[in-house]
Simulated assay, not measured.
Amino acid sequence: MAAAGLAVPVVFLRRHRTGDLYAWLVAACGLGAPLLRRYVDVGTLGPLPNMYEPIWFEEKIRAAWAEGIATAALTVLLFGHRRRPA
């Protein structure tokens, strides 16, 4: 949550390719987390409990769609246009 909160001002206030890449990584990890918890039973990792949950419910579906859209939009932002030389 803190990583996403930091990504917003980095992208909107200081447009730079590294900030865009950071925001893409946050969105991609946000998409990867529910997919990993749904399809892979990783077990207990140190202090983290086993979060394997082999079902989809409405909140998880909406979160996965939102993170997927954010990842796709940031991919277009990173690779979809050329920047003008300074």
Results as ranks from 00 to 15, higher is better:
residue 1 M to W: 13
residue 2 A to Q: 07
residue 2 A to W: 05
residue 2 A to I: 12
residue 3 A to L: 15
residue 3 A to P: 00
residue 4 A to E: 02
residue 4 A to W: 01
residue 4 A to L: 11
residue 4 A to R: 07
residue 5 G to H: 12
residue 7 A to D: 03
residue 8 V to Q: 01
residue 9 P to C: 08
residue 12 F to D: 05
residue 12 F to I: 03
residue 13 L to A: 12
residue 14 R to A: 09
residue 14 R to D: 15
residue 14 R to L: 14
residue 14 R to G: 01
residue 15 R to G: 10
residue 15 R to V: 07
residue 16 H to L: 05
residue 16 H to M: 06
residue 16 H to V: 06
residue 16 H to T: 13
residue 17 R to C: 04
residue 17 R to F: 06
residue 17 R to Q: 13
residue 17 R to M: 12
residue 17 R to D: 09
residue 18 T to D: 15
residue 18 T to L: 15
residue 19 G to S: 07
residue 20 D to W: 13
residue 21 L to H: 09
residue 21 L to T: 12
residue 22 Y to N: 00
residue 22 Y to A: 08
residue 23 A to E: 03
residue 23 A to D: 03
residue 23 A to Q: 06
residue 23 A to L: 10
residue 24 W to R: 03
residue 25 L to A: 15
residue 25 L to E: 05
residue 25 L to H: 02
residue 27 A to F: 06
residue 27 A to S: 13
residue 28 A to L: 15
residue 28 A to H: 02
residue 28 A to V: 14
residue 28 A to N: 01
residue 30 G to S: 10
residue 30 G to L: 04
residue 30 G to C: 07
residue 31 L to A: 12
residue 32 G to K: 03
residue 32 G to A: 15
residue 34 P to S: 11
residue 34 P to Y: 03
residue 35 L to T: 01
residue 35 L to S: 00
residue 35 L to M: 04
residue 36 L to I: 05
residue 37 R to K: 14
residue 39 Y to P: 01
residue 39 Y to R: 05
residue 40 V to E: 07
residue 41 D to P: 02
residue 42 V to G: 05
residue 42 V to T: 11
residue 42 V to C: 06
residue 42 V to W: 13
residue 43 G to I: 08
residue 43 G to P: 03
residue 43 G to A: 02
residue 44 T to A: 11
residue 44 T to S: 09
residue 45 L to H: 07
residue 45 L to A: 10
residue 46 G to I: 00
residue 47 P to F: 07
residue 47 P to E: 07
residue 48 L to P: 00
residue 48 L to I: 08
residue 48 L to M: 08
residue 48 L to H: 08
residue 49 P to E: 10
residue 49 P to W: 04
residue 50 N to E: 10
residue 50 N to L: 07
residue 51 M to G: 11
residue 51 M to Q: 13
residue 52 Y to D: 09
residue 52 Y to S: 05
residue 53 E to D: 14
residue 54 P to I: 02
residue 54 P to L: 03
residue 55 I to F: 09
residue 55 I to R: 11
residue 56 W to V: 02
residue 56 W to D: 02
residue 56 W to R: 04
residue 57 F to G: 05
residue 57 F to N: 11
residue 57 F to L: 08
residue 58 E to D: 14
residue 58 E to L: 10
residue 58 E to R: 10
residue 59 E to A: 15
residue 60 K to G: 07
residue 62 R to N: 11
residue 63 A to M: 09
residue 63 A to Y: 09
residue 63 A to G: 02
residue 64 A to R: 00
residue 65 W to R: 10
residue 65 W to G: 00
residue 66 A to M: 11
residue 66 A to E: 05
residue 66 A to R: 09
residue 66 A to P: 01
residue 67 E to W: 12
residue 67 E to I: 00
residue 68 G to N: 01
residue 68 G to P: 01
residue 68 G to F: 07
residue 69 I to W: 06
residue 71 T to L: 14
residue 71 T to H: 05
residue 71 T to K: 02
residue 73 A to Q: 08
residue 73 A to V: 10
residue 73 A to G: 13
residue 74 L to H: 00
residue 75 T to G: 08
residue 78 L to M: 09
residue 78 L to C: 06
residue 79 F to I: 05
residue 80 G to H: 06
residue 81 H to R: 15
residue 82 R to Q: 13
residue 82 R to A: 14
residue 82 R to D: 09
residue 83 R to H: 14
residue 83 R to E: 15
residue 84 R to G: 07
residue 85 P to Y: 11
residue 86 A to T: 05
residue 86 A to G: 13
residue 86 A to I: 07
